[in-house]
Design a protein around this nucleic acid. Structure first.
Length: 200
DNA sequence: TTCAGGATGTACT
DNA sequence: GTACATCCTGAAC
């Protein structure tokens, strides 16, 4: 299990958003691995995108991370209570990132259940399992991702993305594309087809 | 099964 | 004060 090469993150952001589908987000916590297969992403590109936190070169303490070199994590708090995990893309000083909106756990589900619901895996209802990590706030909670994981190098050994996990088969899948979620305020940018998801 | 409303901190007006 | 890259709950169907 090897982190993706740093060059993966220096390409076109839309291409990266598409290519992240089916890859694995890995976080080492307390010596155990939490691993989830990425099922849904969205691209945010500051240069042309009113929905991006850094549209118009906006620079604040929060958005500073978006200008880092591709391959850095960008984690922020939305609606006062949920974290969102992004992968910064493109070279330094270009503000762009890919939001991870959903994962399917392939390893560490028992530990994740504690992060997510504070309960043992066996105690969870069918409804809770179905909604375990199928949203940006949910996947962060399930993986224990907080602002402590902001601005981390995703080429390290504790927190990274890989395309192969020992013992896990990579299924084939179809890619669905649509407009993004939850950005109705963003005028023309709200209709950009910058959301990618595994549809089969 | 769907739906409206509320929770809550940070950034910006 | 207002808005926000969301999710959960409880009530109605």
């Amino acid at each position: 299990m090897k982190p993706l090469n740093g060059e993966f993150y220096l390409r076109d952001t839309l291409m990266i958003a598409r290519d992240l589908l089916g890859k694995y987000l890995v976080r080492k916590s307390d010596g155990t691995y939490l691993i989830g297969r990425i099922t849904e992403t969205e691209a945010y590109i500051g240069a042309s995108d009113k929905a991006c936190h850094a549209y118009g070169k906006k620079m604040t303490p929060r958005t500073k991370t978006l200008y880092e070199q591709g391959g850095t994590s960008y984690v922020y708090l939305v609606y006062g209570m949920y974290h969102c995990m992004n992968v910064v893309t493109e070279p330094k000083d270009e503000a762009a990132a890919v939001l991870l909106r959903g994962v399917e756990f392939v390893k560490g589900l028992e530990e994740a259940a504690i992060f997510r619901y504070g309960e043992e895996l066996e105690a969870l209802s069918k409804y809770q399992l179905k909604n375990f990590s199928n949203g940006p706030g949910k996947l962060c909670k399930a993986m224990g991702i907080t602002r402590e994981q902001n601005n981390m190098d995703l080429c390290g050994q504790e927190f990274f993305i890989t395309d192969y996990v020992e013992g896990i088969e990579n299924p084939t899948f179809e890619v669905g594309i649509s407009s993004r979620i939850g950005i109705d305020y963003a005028e023309e940018a709200k209709d950009f087809p910058w959301r990618f998801f595994i549809s089969i």
